[in-house]
């Protein structure tokens, strides 16, 4: 018996999980697919490492996995894997950019284990799914012993690897309105290689237009370049009400890059990221408009 080995609990209900997590607030770590937690456990004692006293395995709580749709709202259980989301016909129809984002995660092995809930709650600034969830105006449902509360995905994050979830709160599911068939969307990711790539940059875009081709709604979220995942409203506004032409798209893309610099300040990588974010955003907008410019 070793004092350094964590304990392990396998709750059968969300209530049990919440109760245990609340009692062991600072000492417990939720484990779902394990793809982040086991890496952090391995790194204990080093940067990015963790050494929790308890692991709370939520993988056996019924009802936490799967994609469903009900009157235009798509719900994804926290334990749904990237692979399941990437393949889900519901997602491919009602949120294809999320399917693309999930398909771009790591490798088949990671996609088979990593969950959407884990990807959100690990709160990595480079998480592939979050930009896509942000432009879908996704809400997340957190559960604790008192009940549930729903917050906007972008309100989950308070800093790199930090969330606003309270001790005892478990992410149950995420949900968003299915995109209308007329709605354009895109997820563009730039990695250093084709697989097993952490996003150097990414961008998710949703654009809705009226019959005249005028943009009625635009959502743009760059990934892996903001301190906290967010949409860039100032750029979205540059498109709304317009029939997008090259000038408008360029301006919106530039605004995303400028906003990034405003939010992060000038860093070692800014010389690269500023033009690259602009380019990735421009491509994502065009692709959402149905034009492949690559």
């Amino acid at each position: 018996m070793s004092p350094r080995k964590p304990g392990y609990v396998v709750p059968e209900t969300l209530a049990e999980a919440s109760e245990f997590l609340r009692e062991h607030a600072e000492d417990a770590r939720i484990i779902a697919g394990g793809t982040d937690v086991l890496v952090q456990l391995r790194r204990r004692g080093r940067a990015g490492g963790e050494h929790p006293r308890w692991l709370v395995d939520i993988s056996r709580i019924p009802g936490l996995a799967g994609v469903s749709t009900d009157s235009g709202t798509i719900s994804i259980g926290a334990m749904t894997t990237h692979e399941e989301i990437a393949r889900s016909p519901i997602i491919r129809k009602g949120g294809p950019l999320l399917a693309e984002a999930c398909a771009s995660v790591g490798s088949p092995q990671i996609r088979a284990r990593g969950t959407i809930g884990g990807n959100i709650m690990n709160a990595s600034p480079a998480a592939d799914t979050i930009a896509a969830l942000a432009v879908l105006s996704t809400r997340v449902r957190l559960s604790d012993r008192m009940g549930t509360r729903d917050i906007l995905i972008t309100d989950v994050f308070v800093g790199p690897y930090k969330t606003s979830a309270q001790p005892g709160e478990v992410l149950m599911e995420v949900y968003f309105d299915a995109l209308a068939p007329t709605c354009g969307s895109a997820f563009v990711k730039l990695g250093r290689r084709e697989a097993l790539a952490i996003a150097r940059l990414s961008c998710a875009v949703v654009i809705e237009r009226d019959d005249a081709g005028r943009v009625t709604r635009a959502a743009i979220a760059p990934g892996a370049c903001l301190p906290m995942p967010a949409r860039v409203e100032s750029a979205e506004e540059m498109l709304v009400g317009k029939v997008p032409d090259e000038a408008a798209v360029d301006a919106a893309a530039r605004e995303v890059a400028e906003e990034m610099v405003r939010r992060t300040g000038v860093r070692w990588s800014t010389d690269y990221k500023r033009p690259a974010v602009e380019a990735i955003t421009r491509r994502a907008i065009w692709r959402a408009l149905g034009v492949n410019v690559e």
Binding site: R193, A195, L196
Partner: peptide, 11 residues
């Protein structure tokens, strides 16, 4: 190997 990148089958 998350930071030291070698080519994958897709590269």
């Amino acid at each position: 190997f998350d930071e030291y990148l070698i080519a994958t089958s897709m590269d």
